[in-house]
Amino acid sequence: MAKLQYQCTMSLDGFIAGPGGDMSWLSVYSGPNPAVDDLKERTGALLVGNRTFGGDDPLKGTEHEGEAYGGGWSGPQFVVTHRRMASPVPGVTFVGGLDSGIAAAKAAAGDKDVGVLGADIARQCLEAGLLDEVFVFIVPVLLGDGVRLFDHPGGATIRLERLSQSEAPDSTNLRLRVVK
Rank of each mutant, 00 (worst) to 15 (best):
A68R: 08
V80T: 04
A108K: 04
G91N: 14
Y29E: 13
V141H: 11
E67F: 10
P76A: 02
H82R: 15
V139C: 10
G54W: 04
R148G: 15
G101R: 04
M10P: 09
F94D: 09
H152N: 15
C8S: 10
G146Y: 11
V36G: 10
A128H: 06
W73Y: 06
E133P: 00
L59P: 04
E133M: 02
W73H: 09
R84N: 14
L98S: 08
R123D: 11
L12G: 03
G96M: 10
I121L: 11
F94C: 13
L46C: 08
G96I: 13
D132M: 08
T9K: 07
A86C: 07
T81S: 14
C8A: 12
V92W: 09
L59V: 03
A35G: 01
V114D: 07
L26F: 00
I16R: 02
G129L: 09
L98H: 00
A109S: 11
F137A: 15
R123V: 03
L117Y: 12
Y69Q: 15
P88I: 10
D56V: 05
G72Y: 06
G110N: 06
G91P: 04
G72E: 10
G14Y: 03
G91Q: 11
F137C: 12
V79A: 05
G61Q: 03
L126W: 00
P58E: 09
R42S: 08
K60A: 15
V147P: 12
L131G: 13
P140K: 03
G129E: 11
W25R: 08
G129F: 00
V36H: 07
L149Y: 14
F53Y: 03
Y69S: 15
E133T: 09
P34N: 02
L143G: 05
F135N: 11
I102N: 03
A119N: 12
D120A: 12
V36C: 08
A86M: 12
E133F: 00
F94A: 10
A107V: 12
W73P: 00
L149S: 14
T43I: 05
A35L: 05
E41G: 08
A109C: 06
D111V: 01
A103L: 13
E133Y: 04
G97M: 13
M10G: 03
G75W: 00
L117N: 09
G66A: 06
S30K: 13
T43N: 04
A35P: 01
G66M: 06
S30T: 15
G129K: 08
G54Q: 09
L46M: 09
A109L: 07
G55M: 07
V139E: 01
V80P: 05
V48C: 10
C8K: 01
G97V: 11
I138E: 02
D57T: 03
H152Y: 03
V95M: 13
Y69E: 13
R123P: 05
P58L: 11
L143R: 06
R123T: 05
D13T: 04
A119C: 09
G44C: 01
E41L: 12
A128V: 08
C125L: 07
P153G: 09
G14L: 01
V28Q: 15
G49D: 00
A107E: 13
P88F: 11
L12I: 02
L39G: 07
D113W: 01
V36T: 14
G91E: 11
V92T: 09
I138K: 02
A17P: 07
I16Y: 00
G66N: 04
A105D: 04
G14P: 02
